[in-house]
Amino acid sequence: MLEIRGLAASIDGKPILKGIDLVVPTGEVHAIMGPNGSGKSTLSYILAGREGYDVTGGEVRLDGVDLLTLAPEERAVAGLFLAFQYPVELPGVGNANFLRTALNATRRARGESELDAVQFLKLARAALRDLAMADDMLKRNVNVGFSGGEKKRNEVLQMAILKPKFAILDETDSGLDIDALKIVAGGVNTLRGPGFSALVITHYQRLLDHIVPDRVHVLAGGRILRSGGPELARALEESGYAALGLEAVGEDVAAIGAS
């Protein structure tokens, strides 16, 4: 279970998150929607431990563990995974090597034995098949020369192999055609179960047609302004944020939007 209580954060003294309260019980998938500049990506980076943000208040716990005191790699081995909105290129670093190093770091932390190259390849090939990805994906350098869609699928491949307890998908659907979108959604749905929960950040209903969320939250101006079931996302898609009465906080939204 992920519990966010009163999370406030700023960049260079400018408040971005102004008190987020959000609980994602184990086994559930929640969606976060919201206008540009509302703090969605900031929230995902802070959860994963990126430096450059000042957390000014609140706390985040994953299964009771205080995440904010952990380094990014400690959060990762504790079971947190962030699928990046803009996956990073690592020239000269083979995808298979990268994935195996990451998996073994996780396994070590869990007290499991490390996988050798042969064991790893077997596991990786199975994951590739599930995601309809070509084997040569493993031989290429991490994200180097990948198309936008390939990068996103590579994120989902990493998630499938690392099997996190809690995943954050930051606009993983942007830039995907409908076939790739289904594959990505399939990757998430495969992991769904009692030991897995996720936060799906998206602008679009179409992803949520394939990954049906248990709850939908609207983030605007650094606060969760509305929460509801999957129907909330559909209402947003049809009539926009303003029509939902979110103009009441228009000042905040405008302030962020203008920055």
Partner: peptide, 22 residues
């Protein structure tokens, strides 16, 4: 690049080594 590697469970030093070796 460092953050990306670390978010996958690699320590800072391992991340630097991986990037340098690449």
């Amino acid at each position: 690049q460092l953050f990306y590697c670390r978010s996958r469970g690699l320590s800072q030093e391992d991340a630097v080594n991986l990037i340098v070796n690449g």
